[in-house]
Amino acid sequence: MNHTYQIITAFMGSLGFSILFNIKGRKLGYAAFGGMLAWVIYLLGGLWLSGEMMQYFISSIIVTFYSEICARIEKTPATTFLTAAIIPLVPGRALYYTMSYAIDGKFGEFAEYGSYTVSIAVAIAAGIMVASSLSRVFFALRSYEFRHHSM
């Protein structure tokens, strides 16, 4: 039940940020759905994957592919969808805890949470990079084939 709420709120949260980032029209729907997808994949990953970082990594890979596909449909940069869709994964809460430990002078917890936060960010960033490089290769190949056939 908790997960259902999370999935719904992930959708709404991404929708909210899409509006703040001034995404317009049909793209709003794509972006918000991307946010929901990100969290669904993250939760599903919990069933099969070992380790939280793997969940973040896989989820951001799939969301990046999703954004690249939407970008091709809507003829707009993939960043448009990715920025909003990645929001539920982003380590906002962990970053907040890290900093509040630093302020309280609890340096043991600070180091622990800090490295946790950075690893989440690295996992997400690496996922994005892997997926966007792969999709660049994939779409380059496809347009190459297309040109070949049409000639």
């Binding site: 970053l95 907040y96 950075v118 960010a121 960033a125 994005i128 990079m129």
Partner: peptide, 24 residues
């Protein structure tokens, strides 16, 4: 309550994007 509002302020996205810049 704090964490809900913090999401509006905290640079989680900026952090992720910065690492993305570094990797790329």
């Amino acid at each position: 309550i704090a964490i809900g509002n913090i999401m509006l302020l905290i640079p989680g996205l900026a952090l992720t994007n910065s690492i993305r810049d570094i990797i790329s």
